[in-house]
Simulated scan of single mutants.
Amino acid sequence: MTDTPHRRGADRTEAIMRTTLELGQKIGYARLSMEAVAAHAGASKQTIYRRWSSKGALLLDSLLSLNEPGLDYPDTGDLVADLRAQIHAAVDLLAGPAFGPLFKALVGEAQHDPQVAAALNERLIAPQADKTVARLKAARDQGQLSPGFDLALAMAILSGPLYFQLLITQEQLTHEYVDRILDALFAGMRPRPPMPAAQAGPPPTPGPHRRARG
C-alpha cells in the first residue's frame, strides 16, 4: 500500500481515537484530557484540536469508530427475534463494562454541550431510531403488527426503559431485562382477533312492573 499523506492522516486519526478509548477506559472520562490523548498517541495538541473541537466530540468519534455490525438490524422474518438480537448487541456495546461508562459520560457531556448533543443525536441516536422504525414498519406491512399502531411511539417505548435504567437508576442492563420489555410491548402491538359477533335475536322483554305492597 502506498504511503500517502491521506493514508498517514487516516492512520493518525485512527491511532488517536483508539488511544482515546483505551485511555478513557483506564482513567475514566473525568480525568481524560486532549493533552493526555496527544501524549499517549504521539500526536501534537494542535493536530487533535484541529480535528476535534472538544473532548466530547473526540469521544463521540472514537465510540462511533467501533462500527459494530451487531447494531444493524437483521431481517429473518421474525420481528421479535430481530429486535432481540439488535438490542442485545446494543446493550453489550453501550452498557457493557468496556464502553458503558464512556457512553454514559458522553450522554452527560451532551447535556451541557449543544454541539455534542446535536452530533450524538444526528450520528447515533437518530439513525438507530430510524432503523428500528423501518424494521417495525416492514413487520406492520407484513401483518405482524396492529395496522394502526404508532411506530414512533413503539420506538420510544422500546428505548425509554433502556435509557432510564442506564442513565437514571444506573442499574445493570441485561438481556433478560430487554426480553421483559419486548414481551410487555408486543402483548399490546400484536394484531387482535375480531370480536365475536353478538348472538342474533330480540332483546329480552322486561317483566311487568309490580308495585310494592304496604
Rank of each mutant, 00 (worst) to 15 (best):
T2Q: 13
T2F: 12
D3Y: 00
R7I: 13
A10P: 01
A10C: 11
A10G: 02
T13F: 02
A15Y: 06
L21N: 07
L21V: 06
K26N: 13
I27H: 08
G28Q: 03
Y29L: 09
R31C: 02
S33Y: 05
E35Y: 12
A36Y: 06
H40T: 11
A43R: 08
A43Y: 07
S44C: 05
Q46K: 15
T47K: 02
T47P: 03
S53W: 12
S54Q: 04
K55A: 01
L58M: 04
L63S: 01
L63M: 09
S65E: 09
N67E: 11
G70W: 00
G70V: 01
G70K: 05
L71I: 13
D72C: 08
D75S: 13
D78P: 08
A81L: 04
D82Y: 09
L83N: 07
A85R: 04
A85S: 03
I87M: 14
H88I: 05
H88L: 03
A90D: 13
L94M: 08
A95H: 12
A98Y: 00
A98M: 07
F99M: 14
P101G: 09
K104D: 14
K104I: 14
L106M: 04
V107T: 10
G108L: 01
E109C: 08
H112Y: 12
H112D: 14
D113L: 04
P114N: 09
P114W: 05
Q115E: 15
A118I: 10
A119S: 15
L120C: 08
N121A: 15
R123A: 03
I125T: 08
A129D: 13
A129C: 10
A134M: 04
L136C: 08
A139D: 05
D141C: 08
Q142E: 13
G143E: 01
L145A: 10
L145V: 02
L151P: 08
L151M: 03
A152K: 11
A154D: 03
A156G: 15
A156M: 14
I157N: 12
S159I: 03
S159Y: 13
Y163L: 10
Y163N: 08
Q165T: 10
Q165S: 05
I168Q: 02
E171N: 15
T174D: 01
T174K: 00
Y177F: 15
Y177H: 13
V178L: 07
D179V: 00
R180P: 11
I181P: 10
I181L: 11
L185M: 13
L185V: 01
M189Q: 06
M189S: 01
R190L: 15
P191F: 07
R192N: 09
P194F: 09
P194I: 02
A198R: 15
Q199L: 15
A200V: 13
G201C: 06
T205L: 15
P208T: 01
H209W: 14
H209I: 12
H209G: 14
R210I: 06
